[in-house]
């Protein structure tokens, strides 16, 4: 068996607040293998987003402890700020839920996209502009050349999320972390975005971590899944196994709570 692309052992994240300490992530361990899609599912507050923010080094160091966070051939736990900044974007790309708050409203889309090439790949001028146009074409933004001059507010929700994806995959990262990438979108647009994501994944051979509360989305895109509850992983396995034969009562009740439009099931009040 080849070594995992990302390996996390006993990750714990604590937040200190007015009412004392909150343990948001409580001893989480998992591996991500090359080329696979791993889904992290759970309800609000289960710690799924915080887990990935900790891995990316986006939380205050003081609250994050782990036996080991190993990714992209490095120890990410001890990596300094400069090193992490080089890894984020270059080796690990990230897409957030809300594309409006994660794009800079006062910079053009072109400026934000070319920045990726300039900072991480050292390209300049025409080369990075060409790269940006290619990327927008890849994620299906029409008339990419002219839209580079537009600002985020001139794009629709679905188009903004495409721009976010373009930025995240600009440097062909080994790992793409998508935190609820389609939650804010309508279902027809969601279908477009999910298709783009799986297309890019097979094209670049990326591994993907998809954080989602939508079990339907997970069923469609993931190979393996982790179920989180109160900061812990309560169940993990291949999606087929977890959906067909959930072991934990929590997973069972979570699956049973999803209303199905495709089946003739009656819910008793």
């Amino acid at each position: 068996m080849t070594a995992a692309l990302l390996s996390i052992r006993n990750l714990t994240v604590r937040f200190h607040g007015e009412r004392g300490e909150t343990v948001a992530v409580d001893g989480v361990s998992f591996d991500l293998n090359a080329g696979e899609t791993l889904a992290i599912v759970g309800e609000s507050g289960s710690g799924k987003s915080v887990t990935m923010l900790a891995v990316m080094g986006l939380l205050a160091k003081a609250g994050v402890t782990a036996d080991n966070i190993f990714g992209c051939g490095r120890n990410l736990l001890n990596a300094g700020d400069v090193e992490m900044r080089a890894i984020r974007g270059r080796q690990i790309g990230m897409i957030f839920q809300d594309p409006m708050t994660s794009l800079n409203p006062v910079l053009t889309i072109g400026r934000q996209l070319t920045e990726m090439f300039e900072i991480h790949l050292g390209l300049s001028g025409a080369a990075s502009r060409k790269g940006a146009i290619d990327l927008l074409n890849l994620v299906g933004v029409p008339s990419a050349g002219t839209r580079l001059k537009d600002y985020p507010h001139q794009f629709s929700g679905g188009m903004r999320q495409r721009v976010m994806i373009a930025m995240a995959v600009a440097c062909k990262p080994q790992i793409l972390i998508a935190d609820e990438p389609t939650t804010a979108l309508d279902v027809t647009i969601q279908a477009q975005i999910l298709e783009i994501l799986s297309g890019l994944q097979s094209e670049f051979g990326m591994a993907m971590i998809m954080i989602s509360h939508d079990l339907g989305v997970v069923a469609g895109i993931a190979d393996r899944m982790l179920v989180m509850h109160s900061g812990r992983i309560v169940e993990q396995g291949l999606v087929d196994d977890v959906f067909a034969n959930p072991q934990m009562p929590y997973t069972r009740s979570l699956l049973a709570a999803v209303p199905r439009f495709d089946l003739e099931t009656e819910m008793t009040p």
Binding site: V187, G216, V218, G220, L255
Partner: peptide
């Protein structure tokens, strides 16, 4: 386009 929470169907 609506996802169904069943990997086999999906």
């Amino acid at each position: 386009a609506a996802p169904i929470p069943d990997p086999k169907i999906e």
